[in-house]
Write a protein that binds this DNA or RNA. Structure first.
Length: 892
RNA sequence: GCACGGGUAGCUCAGUGGUAGAGCGGCUGCUUUACACGCAGUUGGUCAGGGGUUCGAAUCCCUUCCCGUGUACCA
C-alpha cells in the first residue's frame, strides 16, 4: 500500500501541472493543423485590472469550452490579452503623480513623457491579471498574448479609422456631447449612467418686459445656468400662454430681455408649462436653439465652474455651489417662487462618478457601419445569443443607434491618425466640418503612418475611445495565417453589461473589416452578486479575492464550486460555502483514487465476470457521458457539474464502492476481485476525462498517479482524446443490462430500508445483526452478501418460508419482505406503532390515487399510459397495505 | 413609462403539464481501514398572492405584489 496523505492538497499539484502543460506546449494552437478549428478570444481585461469573481466565472467557462474542444479532437486557439483601457490606466498613473511631493499633473509632465510613464507602468504592473488567470488554470495560448496597443494592433486601429473616414462614416463636428468635468473629456452615451437622484425643483419668476406686474413662472433644476438662458418656451397649444407668444421676459440673472417662443417639445402638464431654453447646457435646449436660430451662451468652464463675469456673485463658483448660491440670489430678489424636493435622473460618468455636463464641443464621431448586417446576423440565428433574450436588448439598441463619439481628450490611447497642415492648423481646428474632402484638398492628412514630412503637420490632440480598439479584437489579434484557420471564432463568453460597448460593435466591425461575423455563439455569463444580491464592488468590500479563494480551496475547488451555482439565465449569488463544496469534492475524488491505489494492479484477466452492480455503474457511466455532452452542448455548466457531482459521490462512491468493498478484501475470489478492479479503473479513467475540463489539475494528477497516462504513451490527460463511451458494456445486450440495473437498484433500495430499520431500533452501528429476506424476486448469493455489506449486517438469509417471531421489525422492499430478527429484544408495541404509521401514509396515497382513478374524465382523457401508471401505483400500494395489515394482525 | 429576468425547504439553487428535488444548514448517532473536506439516519415546502385553461398546473394564460437588470423621458 502506498502512503499518501489523507487529504488532498491542491496548491502544489496545481502549480506543477500549470507548469507542465505549458512546457509541453499543451495550450499552443497550430494554424497548420488538419484538425477542425475551435477558437475563442478572451474578453481582454484592463491592464489595470486585478482578477475578480466575474473574471473567474467568465474564464472558467472559456477554459471548460476550450479543454472540452481539445478532447473532442479540435485544434484549439484560446487567445489571451489585455486592453489598454485609456481612462482607467491614465487615471492610475495620474494618481501616482498626484502622490508625489510636490504633487504633479500630467500637464506638468508633458504629453510625450507622460505617455512614456504610462508605458513604464504598464510594463511593470500590467501583467498581474494574466498571471492570475494562469493560476486559475486557464489554457490560453500564452505565446499569443496580445495588447490593444501592440504595434500591429495600433496599425489596424489607424487603418480602420482611415477607411471609415474616407468612406464618410467618421467625421468631426461641433456637437452636444457628454462631458466629464473631472476627467475633462467627452464620453460616449454608453459611458453615462442615468442615476436616480434627490434634486430640487426651483420655480423662478420671469417678469414680462412690457408689463412689470405680469410674471411667467418657470420650473428648473439648474438655476445656475439662468445666465445662459436665451428664451423661454411654452407649448403652442397651451391656452394659458397663447397671448404671450412673441413677447419677451426679463432673464432674472444677468438681466436682459429674452423671447417667449412656442415649441412642441414643452409638456403642458409639467411644472408650470414654461421651459427655460439654455442651448449651451442642455441637449434638448440645444436642439430648440438650433430650430429657432438662438444664440449659445456658455457659462461653464470645462471643469464645471461658472464662467460669467457679468454675474460676479456666481463667477468662478463650482457648479453645485453656484446652484445653491443662485437660489439665494433669486430669493433675495424676490424671484424665487418656490423650491421643492424633486426626484429625477441625472447622467453620471461611469468613470469618474460625477454628473456629466451636456457640452458643446468639437469631437470625432462614427456613423456605425454594417448595422443591418449586424442586426440580421443575430435575428437570423447566424450568431446565437445565449440566453436568447439578450437578442432583444441587442436589437433594441441597434434600432435606436446614435453616432458614436469616438474622441477622448486623453493622452493614453490610440491617437487620432489625423494631421493638420501646419499653416492652416489653427483655422482647421475650429472648422465646423471636416471630412474626406479636406483630405483630398491636402489640408489634412489621414493615415496609418505619420506624413512623410512631419515637420509640416500637426497631429490631432485627441485619443480614441478604448472601445474603438477593442471592437477589432477578434481579428486584429490574429495574423493572416491564424485568421485563415481560426476566424470567425467559435464562442464568445462575456458579461451582458458590455453588450453595447463591445459585443455589438465587434459584430459590426467583423462584417465591415473581416469579411463576416466575428463569432458564432455568444454566451452571456451571469453577474456575480453577493448574498444580499448586490453587485460586487470595491467600495462595498463584498468582493472576495479569487486568489485567496484559490489558496484556500484550490483553483479546481473554486472552478467546480462556481460552476455548480452558475445558472444560465440569472445572476449568481456568490456563497463561499459553494466553493468549499468544490474543495470537498476534490478531496472526495482524491480519496476515491487513493482507495484504488491501495489495491494494487489488476491482472490482465481477459474475461472479468461482472455482477449486477458492475454493469449498473458502467451503464450509469455511459449515461454520464451523454449528460455531459448534452449539457455542455447547451452551455448548461451547472447541469453538467451537477451530473458529474452526483454520479461520482452518490452512484459511484456511496453505492457502488460500498457494495463491492468485500470483493477487494483479502481472501476474495481472485476473479471477482479482478472484475471489480477492472470496473473501478474503467469508471475512474472515463470519469477523470469527463471531469477534466472543469477540474483540470486534479484530474490530470490522478490520471497520472493511477497509471492511466502510462496506457496512453505517458501523454497528459489534456492531450488525450475523450474515451469512447460506446465500448462500455459492449458485448452485453439490452435485456442483460436492464436486468442488472433492476437488481442493483433493488439492492440499493433494500439496503436503505434495512438501514432505516436498524436505525429505528437504535441498531445503526450494530454490525452483528442478521437480515432475512422472503424473496419476491430472485436474490442470489451475490446480491445477498452485498446487501449485508451495505446495510452493515453480519449476513443476509434468503428464505422463502421464513416465519418471523412475533413482533420482528419488518419492511417491504424490492427484494421482498425484509426482516430484522431481534433475537429476544422484540418490542411488540413499538413495531405495531411503526407499522401503523406506515399504514397511515399508505392510506393517504391510496385515497389520493383512488380519487384520481375515480374521476371519469381523468380515465377518459388522460393518455392511456398515465392512467396505467396510476393503476399500477394503486395496485402496489394496495398490496403493501395488505401485507402490512397482515403483519399488524400477527402482532396482536 | 417600456422591455427583460427572477420569486420553489432556514440558505444557494435544479425542476416546461402527470407522486415537489439536490447540496448546504439544523437535529440524532458514528474515530465503520479511501475520505470527519467523511459515514448513516432525520427534520424541513399554501412552489409570492389571486383568477383562469386543463382530467390534471410549480410548470401554460391573465392579474396583483415584491426583488433585480436594461432602456427612454424628466424643466
Amino acid at each position: 500500500m502506498r502512503e499518501l496523505p489523507k487529504a488532498y492538497e491542491p496548491t502544489q499539484v496545481e502549480e506543477k501541472w500549470q507548469k507542465r502543460w505549458q512546457e509541453e506546449g499543451c495550450f499552443h494552437a497550430d494554424p497548420h493543423s488538419a484538425k477542425p478549428a475551435y477558437s475563442i478570444v478572451i474578453p481582454p481585461p484592463n491592464v489595470t485590472g486585478v482578477l475578480h469573481m466575474g473574471h473567474v466565472l467568465n474564464n472558467t467557462i472559456q477554459d471548460i469550452l476550450a479543454r472540452r474542444a481539445r478532447q473532442e479532437g479540435r485544434e484549439v486557439l484560446w487567445l489571451p490579452g489585455t486592453d489598454h483601457a485609456g481612462i482607467a490606466t491614465q487615471a492610475r498613473v495620474e494618481k501616482e503623480l498626484a502622490k508625489e511631493t510636490p504633487p504633479r499633473t500630467r500637464f506638468d509632465v508633458g504629453r510625450e513623457d507622460f505617455v512614456k510613464m504610462v508605458w513604464a507602468w504598464k510594463e511593470e504592473h500590467g501583467g498581474i491579471i494574466i498571471k492570475q488567470l494562469k493560476k486559475l488554470g486557464c489554457s490560453c495560448d500564452w505565446e499569443r498574448e496580445r495588447f490593444t496597443m501592440d504595434p500591429g494592433y495600433a496599425a489596424a486601429v489607424a487603418r480602420v479609422f482611415t477607411d471609415l473616414f474616407r468612406e464618410g462614416l467618421i467625421y468631426r463636428g461641433l456637437r452636444m456631447v457628454n462631458w466629464d468635468p473631472v476627467l475633462l473629456t467627452a464620453l460616449s452615451d454608453e459611458e453615462v449612467i442615468m442615476t436616480p437622484s434627490k434634486s430640487k425643483l426651483y420655480t423662478v419668476r420671469y417678469r414680462l418686459e412690457d408689463d412689470p406686474n405680469r410674471w411667467l413662472l418657470v420650473a428648473t433644476t439648474r438655476p445656475e445656468t439662468i445666465m445662459a438662458d436665451v428664451a423661454v418656451a411654452v407649448n403652442p397649444n397651451d391656452p394659458r400662454y397663447a397671448d404671450l407668444l412673441g413677447k419677451k421676459v426679463i432673464r432674472p440673472l444677468c438681466e436682459t430681455p429674452i423671447p417667449i417662443i412656442a415649441d412642441e417639445h414643452v409638456e403642458i402638464g409639467f411644472g408650470t408649462g414654461a421651459l427655460k431654453i439654455t442651448p449651451a447646457h442642455d441637449r434638448v435646449d440645444f436642439e430648440v436653439g438650433v430650430r429657432f436660430g438662438l444664440k449659445i451662451i456658455d457659462v461653464l468652464t470645462a471643469d464645471g465652474h461658472i464662467n460669467c463675469p457679468d454675474c460676479p456673485e456666481l463667477h468662478g463658483l463650482d457648479r453645485f455651489a453656484a446652484r445653491d448660491k443662485s437660489a439665494v440670489l433669486l430669493r433675495e430678489k424676490g424671484l424665487l417662487e418656490k423650491e421643492e424636493a424633486y426626484d429625477n435622473n441625472v447622467g453620471v460618468s461611469q468613470r469618474s462618478d460625477v454628473p456629466i455636463e451636456p457640452r458643446l464641443s468639437m469631437q470625432w464621431f462614427l456613423r456605425y457601419p454594417c448595422v443591418q448586417e449586424a442586426k440580421d446576423a443575430v435575428s437570423n440565428g447566424d450568431i446565437v445569443f445565449r440566453p436568447a433574450h439578450w437578442a432583444k436588448t441587442y436589437a433594441h439598441w441597434l434600432d435606436g443607434i446614435q453616432d458614436w463619439c469616438i474622441s477622448r481628450q486623453l493622452w493614453w490611447g490610440h491617437r487620432i491618425p489625423v494631421w493638420y497642415r501646419k499653416e492652416q492648423a489653427a483655422e482647421l481646428k475650429e472648422a465646423p466640418k471636416l471630412d474626406a474632402e479636406d483630405e483630398k484638398a491636402g489640408r489634412i492628412y489621414v493615415g496609418v503612418n505619420p506624413p512623410d514630412d512631419p515637420e509640416n503637420w500637426v497631429q490631432d490632440e485627441d485619443a480614441l475611445d478604448t472601445w474603438f480598439s477593442s471592437w477589432l479584437w477578434p481579428f486584429a489579434t490574429m495574423d493572416d495565417e491564424c485568421r485563415a484557420k481560426f476566424y470567425p471564432t467559435s464562442d464568445l463568453v462575456t458579461g451582458p453589461d458590455i453588450i453595447f460597448f463591445w459585443v455589438s460593435r465587434m459584430i459590426m466591425a467583423g462584417f465591415r473589416f473581416a469579411g463576416g461575423k466575428p463569432f458564432s455563439n455568444v454566451f452571456f455569463t451571469s453577474i456575480v452578486r453577493d448574498l444580499l444580491g448586490r453587485k460586487m464592488s470595491k467600495s462595498l468590500g463584498n468582493s472576495p479575492d479569487p486568489l485567496d479563494l484559490i489558496a484556500r480551496y484550490g483553483a479546481d475547488g473554486l472552478r467546480f464550486g462556481l460552476m455548480r451555482i452558475a445558472p444560465t439565465g440569472t445572476d449568481v449569488k456568490f456563497d463561499e460555502k459553494q466553493i468549499e463544496e468544490g474543495k470537498n469534492f476534490a478531496n472526495k475524488l482524491y480519496n476515491a483514487a487513493r482507495f484504488r491505489m491501495m489495491q494494487g494492479e489488476a491482472s490482465t484477466d481477459p474475461a472479468p465476470h461482472f455482477s449486477a452492480v458492475h454493469i449498473d455503474i458502467l451503464s450509469k457511466l455511459k449515461e454520464l457521458h451523454s449528460q455531459v455532452a448534452d449539457s455542455l452542448g447547451k452551455y448548461e455548466f451547472n447541469a453538467c457539474t451537477q451530473a458529474l457531482y452526483s454520479f461520482f459521490w452518490n452512484e459511484y462512491c456511496s453505492l457502488f464502492l460500498e457494495a463491492v468493498k468485500n470483493d477487494l478484501r483479502d481472501g476474495a475470489v481472485p476473479a471477482v476481485r479482478n472484475a471489480t478492479l477492472h470496473t473501478i479503473d474503467t469508471v475512474l479513467r472515463h470519469y477523470l476525462a469527463l471531469l477534466a475540463p472543469i477540474m483540470p489539475h486534479i484530474a490530470e494528477e490522478l490520471w497520472e498517479s493511477l497509471g492511466y497516462a502510462a496506457r496512453h504513451d505517458g501523454k497528459p490527460l489534456m492531450l488525450t482524446e475523450l474515451p469512447d463511451a460506446d465500448v462500455l458494456l459492449s458485448g452485453l445486450d439490452e435485456s442483460e443490462i436492464s436486468r442488472a440495473r433492476v437488481s442493483a437498484n433493488a439492492l440499493y433500495e433494500t439496503a436503505n430500508r434495512a438501514r432505516n430499520l436498524k436505525s429505528e431500533y437504535n441498531l445503526a452501528t450494530n454490525k452483528n445483526v442478521r437480515l432475512v429476506v422472503k424473496p419476491a424476486m430472485p436474490v442470489d448469493a451475490d446480491l445477498a452478501s452485498r446487501l449485508a455489506l451495505l446495510a452493515g449486517a453480519k449476513e443476509t438469509l434468503v428464505q422463502a418460508d421464513y416465519s418471523a417471531p412475533r413482533g420482528t421489525p419488518t419492511a417491504l422492499t424490492p427484494f421482498g419482505e425484509l426482516f430484522l430478527p431481534l433475537e429476544g429484544l422484540v418490542d411488540v408495541e413499538a413495531e405495531k406503532s411503526r407499522i401503523a404509521k406506515e399504514l397511515d401514509k399508505i392510506a393517504k396515497e391510496i385515497s389520493r390515487s383512488e380519487a384520481k382513478l375515480g374521476n371519469a374524465s381523468f380515465v377518459q382523457r388522460a393518455p392511456a399510459e398515465v392512467v396505467q401508471q396510476e393503476q399500477d401505483r394503486l395496485r402496489d400500494w394496495k398490496e403493501k397495505r395488505q401485507r402490512l395489515t397482515a403483519m399488524l394482525t400477527s402482532l396482536s
